[in-house]
Structure formats: structure tokens, C-alpha cells
Design a binder for these strands. Structure first.
Lengths: 198, 198
DNA sequence: AGATTAAACGGAGGCGCCTCCGCTTATCTG
DNA sequence: CAGATAAGCGGAGGCGCCTCCGTTTAATCT
């Protein structure tokens, strides 16, 4: 009855795990640069495995897309802590917002395949995105504590601003625009010596 | 300046029209028996034309599906008049309802491709289906006038009944069930000599 | 009728999807 | 370490999608 142990480890070969990881990594790249309809055969090729291996690990395109999506989300959340540790609070916040937009771009590309989560642009910080909420809230709080940005700011306000930024209709230069807008947003948030408007 | 005439007839070759018609006919068959993802190459083959010809007439699968759908709808509406002319009013009504269910089955098969019209099962008698409404209303009125079915019936009531019939979840024997239910519905509608229940 | 012309044809070819199954190899056992 | 065993691999093969372009042919002109 050794098979009924709670910490189940029936067997997973090392090469299998390696291939799986490599596939996810390559797929993330492929999806972000060619959209969710990127060729699966191409992904397999770039990962250095046979197409059969890809299909064994991910029975459908949607399986693969979902795994990639989740991984990106977790990475983004982790990045917040790293950035907070190695940069000035306001710069950490800014950099994180840029990454957030890039992430949204990827997610956007996968929208067709992901029937989930994307129904409206309002539900972005629900569900699995509680992680993102927390990450963002931390960065913002740190920046306020450090006095690098204005204190009269609610987390929700900035989230709303971000929402409208990534909700820009799919123009060709979507990413550029979004990043520029983040620059503007940061300028608005930052504390300035003093000054009067005109 | 002969080209600016209002009744434009720039040119359409006879064989082109013939091929197009044949394709629609074959496609209707294919879609109804294999769903909307029936092989386009197979349709072309069965129609006796090259795949290139199919794609010239219908640039995307959706184009073809839509044309087929509209044709079926028109046919169904026309059938009402024919049936009314050649059968007893109650039998005409019954037969028409059976055809209606078959039509819905086809439409159901194409649901994936038709983003339109199918959003909810409530909107079935809107838009282009005004034709169907009219056709059905006529048949029902004739049957009531002739005294073959009960007079205390509203068009809307029977439509509602039909709606619930074709809305049966996709069980394997979906069509059978639906047709049996129509039999029941007709029994209920028909006038009977007299009689007391138990 | 014969010549002319462009509308229309058709299918080869390139690509992607997905399945199937014979071969490899990591892991376990003695 | 050798042998056993099944987890895992991979790519050929069959199918469908769609494009492209050389060939056919209906319609028109003389």
C-alpha cells in the first residue's frame, strides 16, 4: 500500500520534467511574439523536442496557453519583491508597471484561447490576480513611505489608471503608447520640490 | 458610359453561378450531417469542383456557413405557403413544426461558426426570423379558422412551446425527442369531439 | 465561324494539426 | 554493474487549411 501515501510521487522521470519546463519557456516566448496561434510544431522544434512530446505534456493548445499564462503571472508577482529589494521605491514601482503592461500584452495575445478571466476589463484584479494586487500594493506603500511619491494616493486610483492604460484599443503601436503613459503617470505621482502652475 | 447603368451586370459567367449553387447545396448537406466543421475539401469534392473554386466563392468558412444558413431560413419560410396549399391545415402546421426542428438542428450545428443570432435562445424570432414568425402565424391562423385546432391559443404560446422543444440539451437522440414532443404538442392543440377526463 | 480576352477553374504544394506506435533511456532491482 | 521494465520520446503519416498560378473556357468581338 505504498501507493496511498499522501505525498504522492508515483514517478516522474527527470528528462520529462526538463522537457516540460523547456516547452513552457519557449512557448511563453512564442506566444508573446506571435500571438496565441503560434505554431505548436515550431514551439516543439525550438524547444528541441518532438511534436509528440509537446502533445503528451499538453493535450490541447489551451492547456499550454493556460500554463504559460499562470507562470507569467507568478513571475510578475515575484518580480515586485525583487525590485523592491534592489531599487529606489519609486523606480521599483515604475519598472513594475512597465512589466505589468508587457504582461497584459501577452495576455491580450492569448485572449482568443483563454475563454476565462478576460470577459471584461473590470475583472482583471479578481481571482488569481490577487497576487498582483498584493504585489502592487506593497510597491506603492513602500514608495509612499519613502516619500518618493505623493501620499494622497489610493491604491485603487492607480490601479484604475493602469486599467485604462492597458485598455487602449489595439492600435499598432499599442505597447509604446502604454509605456509612454506610464511615464506620465509616474511624473504625476512623484513628489516635486514645490511650484505653482502658470 | 454603358458601365454606369443602374441595373449593373458587369458579367457573371454561367458556370460560375452553377458551381456556386452546387457548392451551397452540398454544403448544406455536409453541415447538417457533420456539423459546421465539416471538411471544406470534402464539400468541394462532393460538389465536383476544385478547392480553389470553393475558396474563390467563399473566402472563409464563415461566409459559406452564413449563406447556407440564410438559404435554409428562406426555404423554411417558403415551405409554409406550399404546405398550406396542399395539406389539411392541422397537418400542414404539424409538418412545418417538424421541419422547423430540423432547421434548428442544422443551425445548432453551425452555432460555433455563427457568432451571430445564437447568443441566447430567446432571440430566435428576432432579426431575419421575422420571416419564420410570419410563416408560422399564417399556418396557425389557417388551422384555427378551419376548426382543426383549438381556438383559445395564442401564437406566442405555441412559439414558446417550440422554443423549449428545441432547447433540449444536446442529448444523443436529440432530434427524435424533439419530434416526439411535437407529436404531443399537436395532440394537445387538436380539437376533439368531446369527452371528459376520468 | 474564328479570334480574342479575361473570368473562372482546379489542384499542387506548403504548412499546421494531431495520432499512433516502434524505439530509447531513466530508474529500479538484484 | 547487468538486466529488466515501463515512462517517455519523436517523427512519420494522414488529414485539413489556404494560396498561388498555369490552364481552360464562356462570352464577346469582327
Amino acid at each position: 500500500m505504498a501507493s496511498s501515501e499522501p505525498g504522492k510521487k508515483p514517478r516522474q522521470r527527470a528528462d520529462a520534467r526538463r522537457n516540460r519546463d523547456k516547452l513552457v519557456e519557449v512557448a511563453a516566448e512564442a506566444f508573446s511574439e506571435r500571438g496565441a496561434q503560434a505554431s505548436l510544431e515550431d514551439i516543439a522544434r525550438r524547444a528541441g523536442v518532438g511534436i509528440g512530446t509537446l502533445y503528451r505534456h499538453f493535450p490541447t493548445r489551451e492547456h499550454l496557453v493556460e500554463v504559460v499564462y499562470r507562470r507569467e503571472l507568478e513571475r510578475l508577482a515575484e518580480a515586485a519583491a525583487e525590485l523592491a529589494a534592489e531599487r529606489a521605491p519609486d523606480l521599483a514601482l515604475e519598472e513594475w508597471m512597465h512589466r505589468f503592461v508587457s504582461y497584459m500584452a501577452t495576455k491580450r495575445g492569448m485572449a482568443g484561447s483563454l475563454k476565462l478571466l478576460m470577459t471584461s476589463n473590470a475583472c482583471l484584479f479578481t481571482e488569481g490576480s490577487a497576487l498582483l494586487r498584493a504585489a502592487f500594493g506593497d510597491l506603492l506603500a513602500k514608495a509612499i513611505d519613502a516619500g518618493s511619491i505623493r501620499g494622497d494616493i489610493e491604491t485603487v486610483d492607480v490601479l484604475t489608471a493602469l486599467s485604462s492604460i492597458y485598455s487602449i484599443p489595439d492600435l499598432p503601436d499599442w505597447r509604446e503608447r502604454a509605456h509612454r503613459l506610464i511615464g506620465l503617470l509616474m511624473d504625476g505621482l512623484r513628489c516635486r520640490p514645490a511650484g505653482d502652475g502658470a
